[in-house]
Structures are given as C-alpha cells and as structure tokens.
Amino acid sequence: MERLAIRRRPLLLLPLAVVVVAGVGFVELLQQAKEGRYNPHKVPNLLVGHPVPAFTTGPAPPGTGFSAADFQHLSHPVLVNFFASWCLPCHAEAPLLTELKDHGVAIWGIDYSDSKAAFHGFLAADGNPFTRLGDDPNGAAAVAWGISGVPESFLVDREGIIRWHLGGPLSPPVVADTLMPLLHKFA
C-alpha cells in the first residue's frame, strides 16, 4: 500500500504542475501588460508598408470574389476587412462599416472560415457594407495576409501598398482619429 502510494505521487502532482505553469504564464503576461509590452487587444502585422500579398478568394454571393490582381490600378484606397458570421466583434463592427460605406469608403470584405448559410444570415442581420466580397473557406487568404483572428482590417493605398492595419474591431475613435485622416492622405 505504502509502495503504491509512493509510486502514484508524481501523477498526483500533475494538477499542481498545470496550475503553476498557468500561474507563471499569467504573472508574466500581467507583468508585460504593466510595462505596456502586452495588450490583448493589439495585434501587429508585418505586411504594413509592403504590397498586397499573393492571394485569391472565391465568390461569396452577392460578391464575386477578388484576388491580388484586383489591387493594381486602384482609383481610391481600399479598406480590406476580414470577418466571419461566428465572430461577435464582427457583428459589433458592422454598423460602423455601413457608416463608412455611406461616406463613400470602398470596403472589400473577406469572409473567413464560414458556412454559406451563416454568411447570408450575417448579411441579412447586419446589412452588406462591402463593395466587393470574397470567400476564404479554408483560410488560405487569411494565411497570406497573416491575420490572427477576425475581425482585422487593412488599408491599401492606390498603388496596392498596405498602409495600415488593425487587429480587432473598428471603433468610432479609431475611425475618426486614425482611419479617416489616412483615407484623406492616400485618396
């Protein structure tokens, strides 16, 4: 009995080990957050300053899909928005996108890893703020653009260079203070 008990002890320490690892991780995260190095809401992207990557999307009715070639010879800057119907912040963001569309901003949406039915539900519930729509069922375009989740938005200028990136939903202050000035700058 006593021998059995000793033999089983390492396994019984497993829950403690999980907790300690998780705890140390959280301490480090909080430390980084304190020093401003970690922000759960900030997502960097390495493509800013570079041309649009090679990618293609399938049709997502009413949109016909688009690819990297469509970013050549633009007459105006384009806001590329990755979204999905299963993503709560994407629903939250939709009214703001509609407002931007009403201001004449071209928004090209890429529907990430979504089902057709759910996608139509999204458009029905939140309206369609998108000038063009592409479907990215297996996430190939998402990988090409280096996104880490949805929603994410990119501003592409007329030369097809990515000028700005936002990981997470757009908010009125971001639109007013950052996006609108950039749109004017690259118009």
């Binding site: 970690y38 759960p40 880490s148």
Partner: peptide, 15 residues
C-alpha cells in the same frame, strides 16, 4: 491565445 502571445510572441484568436 494569451499563451501563444507569450511563448511565440504572436497574437491570434480562437473562435
């Protein structure tokens, strides 16, 4: 997501 950010330094979200 938070631990991937910690270990690999990249942000992602699991949906």
């Amino acid at each position: 997501p938070p631990f991937a950010a910690l270990v690999a330094g990249e942000q992602l979200s699991v949906g």
